[in-house]
Amino acid sequence: MSTVDGLTAPVDVADEVASASRRRLVRRRAGGGATRSALGRKARWAGWLFALPALVMYAVFELYPIITAVQYSFFDWDGVSVATPAGLKNYTRVFTEPQLLASIIHSFILIIFFTFLPVLLALVVASIVREIKSKALGATARTMMFLPQIIPGAASAIAWTWMYSPNGAVNQMLGAVGLASLQRAWLGDFTWALPAVGIIGTWLATGLCTLLLMAGIGKIDTSLYEAASLDGANRIQQFRAITLPGLRQEIGVCITITIIAALASFDVVFMSTQGGPGYSTQVPGVQVYQLAFTENRIGQSSALAVVLSIIVLAVILPIQRFFREK
């Protein structure tokens, strides 16, 4: 990353997208660095002034809540009365309470559905859509793919709950193709509830990943494909040698966003299963909410939230590194 945007937090994804494209620009006009830094020094303080409103918002609505959450996590507090210091008790409980630990494991399982499947699907779809010559058709395909993204997660979870219901669309379709033996109450099944919830995430994330990857493919020089096909490379070889390396940055962004969505998942699980049946789809996001707002255990909830944030950072930072290094 350039020094100008040194403020950026490592996991700030929106900025990541922006700087990915900026990097290409910088690379293209190599040698422009001298003028930039001279200008930069003069405008540095003016720049801070422009950033001030945003910084204030960031401090009040991001930093302050994070700091207070860390503070609360060392207390036993019901949110109303006087808090009593709890030391590290809230943290030890996160790692000793089997249900809290299981919820963290569930969120890692969700990565398969929120990240791996969408990125794979998006790669396939994006490479196919690239070949669609008709502009209108391409635009339609893009819009269709992106539609799930504009529906709130909570709303789509409700729609999927209907589809998964014992008489819902999923079971009807299975019956129609002669797979009635596979019909089950998906969200009420101890084995299948977590994958079923995961599929909702797949459906939500695929559109976003496709759009990002299509944007990335659009930036790959088409002459590379022409040259490759002249050399006799088939589609799969072209995909491996040109598309995949060309999309390194975008895939990194996709994986980052979707892993955060998986580990910090809340809306989809909360609206579809509330963590049930039993504890089979319980995730930390829902636990944090229930601990704080149903059980009024603000300290315990904050401790789990802090642990969750650290886990997300621990997973995301190496991924960021991997996709950044050339």
């Binding site: 700091i67 949110g79 109303v80 006087v82 808090a83 009593t84």
Partner: peptide, 18 residues
């Protein structure tokens, strides 16, 4: 830095005074 601020803040318990 953030943690040390939090540590300082942690000196006063959340919630109203008794």
């Amino acid at each position: 830095g953030a943690l040390s601020v939090a540590g300082a803040a942690a000196c006063s318990a959340p919630g109203p005074a008794a």
